[in-house]
Simulated scan of single mutants.
Amino acid sequence: MARKNIPITLKSVCKLLLLNVSFIVLLTACNQSTKDQTKGSSKQKTSVEEISQDENYITCWGIGPLEFGDDPASIQEKVGKENVSMDSLFLEGDFERLITKVWKGSPKEISIVWEEVKAPFKTIKLFEVSHQNSPYKFHNGIGIGSTLKEIVALNGEEPINLYGFGWDYGGTFIDFGKGKLKGDLPCFGGVFELQTEVGDAEVQQAMGNQAITSNLPALKKYPTVLKVIRVSEKGTK
């Protein structure tokens, strides 16, 4: 059978070329769309995983894996019964109440003060961390060992109010004054330590049962660090 020759015209060549170009453009667009979707999905997954896996954050909802909505049963379920124990809280040398401690004696230790003075305990009043190697931090970096100077900087350079040093409630945080952190961290509480053995007139100004500010010369001259962090759901200290 004789093969029929089909005339090739310029018009037919152009049509073929246009079809090929359209196919290539469509294929490229599909590939790029798939890559973008995969990339976006990967970013979203990473963000969620980072938040869920980082149990060292302090927020106004709690510390680490623990939240204000927890009760003794849920705490044991989260961290393991073997990591939960009861301890005594003393104020001014006198027994005050029983509290719960999680991971007692380790850098991850968290103390829990309950609204109820005795069992059954149902409502968390505040969380506290104080281990010098505590890993817990707020999102802005404030943690155990943060200096008063660093926190004042985060407060927009507005002075911070606290109680004078050298007595039972010495160095206890009062408030952020008019600073930025007043709105950012309404749940924040804690205790600062003035690290000096000098007893000059400047230091004496920062001592005793009185409200003082971070503007005092002694607090700028000598290291003043955060040694206790307390987190209260309602911002009470």
Rank of each mutant, 00 (worst) to 15 (best):
D168F: 11
S134N: 07
E158F: 08
V228W: 04
N56V: 01
W167Q: 00
V228A: 00
K125F: 15
L226G: 05
E115F: 07
E109V: 07
G199T: 14
E157M: 13
F95L: 11
D200K: 09
S47I: 14
T28F: 12
I174S: 10
Y222W: 14
R3Y: 03
I144H: 09
V228E: 05
N31C: 13
T236M: 06
I99M: 14
S22K: 06
H131Y: 02
K182W: 06
L219I: 09
S134V: 03
G141C: 01
S232R: 07
G189I: 09
L27M: 13
G164E: 02
S106R: 15
K35H: 12
G80V: 04
G171E: 00
E197I: 05
K45S: 15
F188L: 02
I6G: 00
V48Y: 08
L16T: 10
V231Y: 04
L219W: 09
F176D: 00
K43D: 13
F192Q: 01
L216A: 08
G177R: 03
Q44P: 00
K149C: 01
V152D: 01
A211L: 10
R3W: 05
D168T: 10
E67N: 14
K234Q: 09
T123C: 02
V13S: 04
L226P: 08
L89I: 12
N56I: 00
N209F: 06
T224M: 02
E115W: 04
R97K: 13
E116P: 08
G156C: 06
P217D: 05
Y222D: 07
I51Q: 12
K11A: 14
F188N: 00
G80N: 07
K149A: 13
K39R: 15
K182L: 03
S146A: 06
S33E: 14
P72M: 04
P72C: 08
A153F: 11
D184H: 10
E77H: 11
R3A: 14
P223D: 05
F165N: 03
L91G: 01
Q76H: 01
R97E: 14
T38C: 05
T213Y: 02
F23I: 14
D200Q: 05
L219V: 09
K220C: 11
F192I: 06
T100V: 08
K125H: 15
K137D: 00
I229V: 11
E109C: 06
H139R: 15
K182D: 03
T147K: 02
G40Q: 11
E116S: 10
L89W: 10
V129N: 11
G208C: 00
